[in-house]
Computed example of a mutant assay.
Amino acid sequence: MERRNFLRASVVGAGALALPFTLWEGTGLGSPAQPAPGPYGPLRAADTNGIMLPSGFTSKIVARSRQVVAGTSYTWHDAPDGGACFADGTGWAYVSNSEINPDGGASVIRFNAAGTIVSAGRILGGTRLNCAGGATPWKTWLSCEEVDRGYVYETYPFGGTAVRRPAMGLFQHEAAAADPVRKVVYLTEDESDGRFYRFVPTTWGDLSRGTLQVLVAGTATSGSFTWANIPDPDGSPTRTRHQVQGAKVFNGGEGCHYADDRVWFTTKGDNRLWQVNLVAGTYELAYDDSLVTPGTPPLTGVDNVTGTTGGDLYVAEDGANMEICLITPGSQVSPFLRITGQSSSEITGPAFNPAGDRLYFSSQRGTSGSSSAGITYCVQGPFRR
């Protein structure tokens, strides 16, 4: 499947799961982000990689689908999608999903302290449309299948055999975000009538057993919420999203990011970014392209989302004009980068290295629009931290 622009019409790194997003605490209900000049200034002309960046930032290509990763013998996968960075000694590792069917999965590239590639390899194979996912505090990657009654697979970037985690529910999974304070994992569902879930493990750090719950709330765009247990996480014959009366509907759940008692997630069907305040028990809109005034919304085709220790959110676009947009804690949104000449692709897998000075991401289908033409990039520069 080559993904989903037609639906618009109808972390983060494991060492940074509790980022200090304290500046968001002043954001009031009903005040979604509005356009403003970016903190790094305007975008410059495209560089040799076709990427427009602010002054002081540079890009490089890390890997290309069906080509050997430089310095290794490993061939990079097709259709790179969701990703995350993990601390690895003095270096780090970047994990990326492969959104193809039937032989999807995930791969990893490892870097030394200087950012030089030292190895690469497969950590999951033989799965279906591995779209997004999420990192855990114990340095595993949750790779999620975006298919009807799809699974979450727990994978091991530093060695170990991937394990299917059916207790986390069988549905059209998208992203996951671990919350080490409440000891739960949040999950999005890529359906036009999708729901927002959390998985409560029986033992934190062991995802083999636990309780799947769904967010219950009214139909408004802000308010209070509760959690209710899903009676049958297997989703058959009744799909998980239809099992609990009053479960709030979200139109096409996508990226998900946790930090400092809040979780953010995007919905592609209505082009929104939601913020859930886990202490107050409330939810609200952090961004809605239909509420941008005046002028053209800077962010459309919302998809994957990640954040920095400085409190900024970075939201990748699926199509649109191929930008990663930045939303500040002061609710200001602006383009951070734009990929040119790749209008038939989407930006996927944004993730910062542990130091926060490099942002990894992919163009899933590159210049040709084919899943075999994916490109994975790294942007380096003076990110706010």
Results as ranks from 00 to 15, higher is better:
A178C: 14
W227Y: 03
G194L: 02
F265S: 06
T72M: 04
D232C: 08
C85I: 05
S119M: 08
R122A: 13
H257G: 01
F361I: 00
Y197D: 05
A286E: 05
D179F: 14
S98M: 07
G319T: 05
V244P: 13
E99S: 05
G169A: 12
V279Y: 06
S96Y: 13
G246P: 12
G15Y: 09
N321I: 13
S331M: 15
C85P: 02
T161G: 12
T161F: 10
D270A: 11
T161M: 10
G126C: 09
Y151L: 15
V185T: 13
L187F: 05
L53K: 00
N304H: 04
T58F: 10
T296K: 12
A135Q: 10
P350M: 11
G15S: 15
E25I: 00
H173I: 02
A18V: 13
A132C: 09
S143Q: 07
R358S: 12
Q213V: 01
F86A: 04
Q275D: 12
R122P: 02
I51F: 05
G301R: 05
G105A: 08
R164Y: 04
G349W: 00
C378E: 15
G366R: 06
E174Q: 11
T188A: 04
H173Y: 08
G246E: 09
S362A: 15
N97P: 10
F265P: 00
N101H: 12
A87P: 14
G295Y: 11
N97G: 07
G341P: 07
G210Y: 03
T22N: 14
G369L: 06
Q332Y: 01
L7V: 09
S208Y: 07
A9P: 07
G125M: 08
G13H: 12
F383R: 09
W141M: 10
V244S: 10
V244R: 13
L129M: 14
V95M: 00
E189P: 01
A286W: 06
G30T: 02
Q380W: 06
G301H: 02
G218K: 01
R8I: 13
L17I: 14
Y156N: 07
D81L: 02
G121I: 03
T136L: 01
G366H: 02
Q380Y: 04
W92M: 00
H173V: 03
T161W: 04
Y258C: 07
R358C: 11
R66W: 11
Y283N: 08
L19S: 11
T72D: 10
D318V: 02
